Computed example of a mutant assay.
Amino acid sequence: MTNPDTRSVIVEKDFPHPPEKVWRALTESSLIEQWLMKNDFQLVAGRAFQLRMDPVPNWNGVIDCQVVTVDPGKTLAYTWGTLGLESVVTFTLTRTDAGTHVHMEQTGFRPDQEAAYKGANYGWQAFLGKLEHVLTSVE
């Protein structure tokens, strides 16, 4: 259920690749590292994992996550917790005539988390741009 006092970041992008290929890039640890961050992700509902980047002042670079939803080839959702932000990231894949439409939504930004909200808007645009490059190299 969505909290009416929170906001969501939504990024949608069409990829000229089949959903099976996009799904692999979203769910295989070595591919996730290429477009998102270092990780210990495993495609198991309920499994906790971490996304890691280089630490910066006032942040250790760790995002604590847990797989929430796995609907192979269609939907992947996981929690995203860091610096007081408790949110959920959901990827929904839809096959199109030209490939795959990806709808990414990160929910749970409170009104006092404006910086995190703006950062996520920027970050997900960049991450999905990197995902496009990774998909061109995936068999």
Rank of each mutant, 00 (worst) to 15 (best):
residue 1 M to H: 11
residue 3 N to L: 03
residue 4 P to Q: 01
residue 6 T to E: 02
residue 7 R to W: 07
residue 10 I to R: 13
residue 13 K to C: 04
residue 13 K to L: 09
residue 17 H to I: 00
residue 18 P to M: 10
residue 18 P to D: 11
residue 18 P to N: 11
residue 20 E to R: 03
residue 21 K to A: 02
residue 22 V to Y: 09
residue 23 W to M: 00
residue 23 W to Y: 07
residue 25 A to G: 01
residue 27 T to E: 01
residue 28 E to I: 03
residue 29 S to P: 00
residue 29 S to T: 03
residue 31 L to Y: 06
residue 31 L to M: 03
residue 31 L to A: 02
residue 33 E to M: 03
residue 33 E to H: 12
residue 34 Q to W: 07
residue 40 D to T: 03
residue 42 Q to K: 15
residue 43 L to Y: 07
residue 43 L to F: 09
residue 43 L to I: 01
residue 46 G to F: 06
residue 48 A to T: 04
residue 48 A to K: 15
residue 49 F to C: 01
residue 49 F to T: 01
residue 49 F to E: 01
residue 49 F to Y: 08
residue 50 Q to W: 11
residue 51 L to S: 02
residue 52 R to G: 06
residue 52 R to D: 02
residue 52 R to W: 11
residue 53 M to S: 14
residue 53 M to I: 13
residue 54 D to Q: 14
residue 55 P to T: 12
residue 57 P to Y: 14
residue 58 N to C: 12
residue 58 N to H: 15
residue 59 W to M: 11
residue 60 N to G: 12
residue 61 G to D: 06
residue 61 G to N: 09
residue 64 D to H: 15
residue 64 D to S: 15
residue 66 Q to E: 11
residue 66 Q to T: 09
residue 67 V to S: 08
residue 68 V to M: 15
residue 72 P to W: 15
residue 74 K to E: 14
residue 76 L to R: 03
residue 77 A to D: 05
residue 78 Y to I: 06
residue 78 Y to G: 04
residue 79 T to N: 06
residue 80 W to F: 12
residue 82 T to I: 10
residue 82 T to A: 15
residue 83 L to P: 00
residue 84 G to A: 07
residue 84 G to W: 10
residue 88 V to I: 13
residue 88 V to S: 03
residue 89 V to R: 06
residue 90 T to D: 06
residue 90 T to C: 04
residue 90 T to K: 07
residue 91 F to Q: 01
residue 91 F to K: 00
residue 91 F to R: 00
residue 99 G to R: 04
residue 99 G to C: 07
residue 100 T to V: 04
residue 102 V to S: 04
residue 102 V to T: 09
residue 102 V to C: 10
residue 103 H to N: 10
residue 103 H to P: 00
residue 104 M to S: 06
residue 104 M to P: 00
residue 105 E to Q: 13
residue 105 E to C: 09
residue 105 E to K: 10
residue 106 Q to N: 07
residue 107 T to H: 08
residue 107 T to F: 02
residue 108 G to F: 02
residue 110 R to E: 11
residue 111 P to Y: 11
residue 111 P to D: 13
residue 111 P to A: 09
residue 111 P to W: 09
residue 111 P to G: 11
residue 112 D to W: 10
residue 113 Q to D: 11
residue 114 E to T: 10
residue 117 Y to V: 01
residue 118 K to G: 14
residue 118 K to Y: 13
residue 120 A to V: 03
residue 120 A to I: 05
residue 120 A to K: 03
residue 121 N to F: 06
residue 123 G to Q: 08
residue 124 W to E: 05
residue 124 W to S: 08
residue 127 F to W: 09
residue 129 G to E: 15
residue 132 E to S: 14
residue 133 H to M: 12
residue 136 T to Y: 08
residue 136 T to L: 12
residue 137 S to I: 13
residue 137 S to W: 05
residue 138 V to T: 08
residue 139 E to F: 08
residue 139 E to L: 12
residue 139 E to H: 09
